[in-house]
C-alpha cells in the first residue's frame, strides 16, 4: 500500500523529468517549445470553456430538479430483483454524468458502511473502472463540431455496464459478501 502511494507520488515528477531529459538529449529548445505548447493548451481551454459551461449547467439543473433521484429510485427495485445491491444503483448512474457527484456518493458509502465493507469495496472498484461518459463524449466531440456520434454512446454504456457488473462479481469472488 505504502509503496503504491509512493509510486503515485513519483509518477508526475518522473514523467516530467523523463520527457525534459529526453528533449534535452535530442537538443530540443526546451523552454521555447514548452511555451509554444502551453500557449496551445491555454487556447484549448478557452475553446472548450463554452462546452464546459453548457455541460455543467445541464448536469446541475438535472440534479437539482430531482429527475436523477426519480430515475435512480426507478432503477432500485429493478437492481434488487437482479441481485444487484440497490445502494449502488445511484452511484452507477451518477457516475456517467458527474465525477464530483459520484465521489460524493462514494464517500457517503464509505461513511455509512465503511471502505472495507462489501459495498465499500465494490464502489471503489466501480469508480476505478468507469468513466464520466456524458462529460467526456460532449467535450471531445463538441470540440471538433461532431454532432452525429454514431455508436460511441452505446459502446461506452456497454463498457460501463460491464464495469459495474464486473466490480460486483469480482469483489464477491475475491472477498465474499
Amino acid at each position: 500500500m505504502r509503496l503504491l502511494l509512493v509510486i503515485s507520488d513519483f509518477i508526475i515528477p518522473v514523467t516530467v523529468l523523463f520527457i525534459v531529459c529526453f528533449g534535452c538529449l535530442k537538443r530540443v529548445k526546451l523552454y521555447e517549445t514548452f511555451l509554444e505548447g502551453a500557449k496551445d493548451g491555454l487556447k484549448t481551454v478557452v475553446d472548450i470553456l463554452p462546452t464546459l459551461i453548457g455541460l455543467i449547467v445541464a448536469v446541475e439543473v438535472f440534479r437539482a430538479g430531482g429527475l436523477l433521484d426519480i430515475m435512480t429510485n426507478l432503477i432500485r427495485p429493478l437492481a434488487d430483483r437482479c441481485g444487484f445491491p440497490a445502494e449502488l444503483a445511484p452511484l452507477s448512474l451518477i457516475r456517467l454524468v458527474s465525477s464530483s457527484a459520484a465521489t460524493g456518493l462514494l464517500l457517503d458509502i464509505f461513511q455509512n458502511f465503511g471502505p472495507d465493507s462489501f459495498l465499500g469495496r465494490v464502489s471503489s472498484v466501480m469508480m476505478s473502472c468507469t468513466e464520466t461518459v456524458f462529460y467526456t463524449m460532449s467535450l471531445y466531440f463538441l470540440s471538433i463540431g461532431i454532432r452525429k456520434t454514431r455508436y460511441t454512446l452505446p459502446c461506452a454504456l456497454v463498457a460501463n455496464f460491464v464495469g459495474v457488473i464486473a466490480a460486483v462479481v469480482l469483489v464477491q469472488m475475491a472477498f465474499g459478501k
Binding site: 514523467t15 528533449g23 538529449l25 530540443v28 529548445k29 514548452f34 505548447g37 484549448t44
Partner: peptide
C-alpha cells in the same frame, strides 16, 4: 501541453 510539446519535438 508544454511538456507534451517537448515530448513531441524530442
Amino acid at each position: 501541453s508544454g511538456i507534451l510539446k517537448i515530448a513531441e519535438k524530442g
